[in-house]
Amino acid sequence: MSDNLVIETRDLTKAYGKFIAVKNLNLRIEEGEVFGLLGPNGAGKTTTILMLMGFCEPTSGSVRVTGYDPAREPVKVKRVVGYMPERIGFYDDMTARENLEYTGRLNGLGGSLLKSRIDELVEIVGLKDRADQPVGRYSHGMKQRLGIADVMVKQPRVAIFDEPTSGIDPEGTDQVLNLVRDMARRKVTVIISSHQLHQLQKVCTSVGIFSRGQVIASGPVDKLGREALRKGNYNIILPIAQLADRVRSEISRIPGVFSIDSIADTTIVSADEDVSAELERVVLEITGLKVQMKVEEFELEEIYMKYFEGPPV
């Protein structure tokens, strides 16, 4: 296992009687990634997370989280992995600060270190003014943000969020996702499961699409998009309506380019690899113009629909 692989599963399978919740799952998540778990309800996302946390034992296959088996050495895994369950709850009659303190103590923290860390965290999640109120009076969105603070108390290497944005308003969703992005910036590996594809796209570096207990596609969003929607080809968009014939023929001579189409007021160059640098050079050479061009991007939603289109399987 390579050093920067934080999570690795091999042929991971979980069966409940005849129902197979997760089937031969091979997941590899590297340090520093923000990995999104996508898929319809019941596709096995939560069960996978439970096995990563050692909350349920795999029927077969193996899991390694930061090099440890969560079923055998749960404490070692939980020391570095933070987990926010789908329906997170706190002790309602305790204040936010007391709840975080309890989590901190269970992690062996205490004293002024814990206190200053909690002060910092309630500030980050925007609950500073209400940190001394009982959590029972919190709104759902506030609880989710407190949940993120709760995960961060132990300063994890890996943070797992199960549906962190379900049931909260768009503003709250934005706040939660900003916090997740913030964690990624602090070099925390983040695993996040969600249905809100648009939001997920904003934070994830890679995604895995689950269907009926299996990952049917995984990788960075743009790669998935090319594979699913463009048969693996690159489309480079030039904001020029009509190309001069000379430019056109020069472009078509770039290795890899196989078609040049004009659509509306843009020109799309299709190639089987990323030729944007070459393209830019050619256009600059001939016309003397530095043209803004971009590689076509994909909506996660489109990709997702592509995988789940057609008759339900």
């Binding site: 933070g82 987990y83 062996g108 132990k154």
Partner: peptide, 10 residues
């Protein structure tokens, strides 16, 4: 909803 949170501590 506290049990999962509690048990995800070391």
């Amino acid at each position: 909803g506290n049990l999962s949170r509690l048990l995800s501590q070391p």
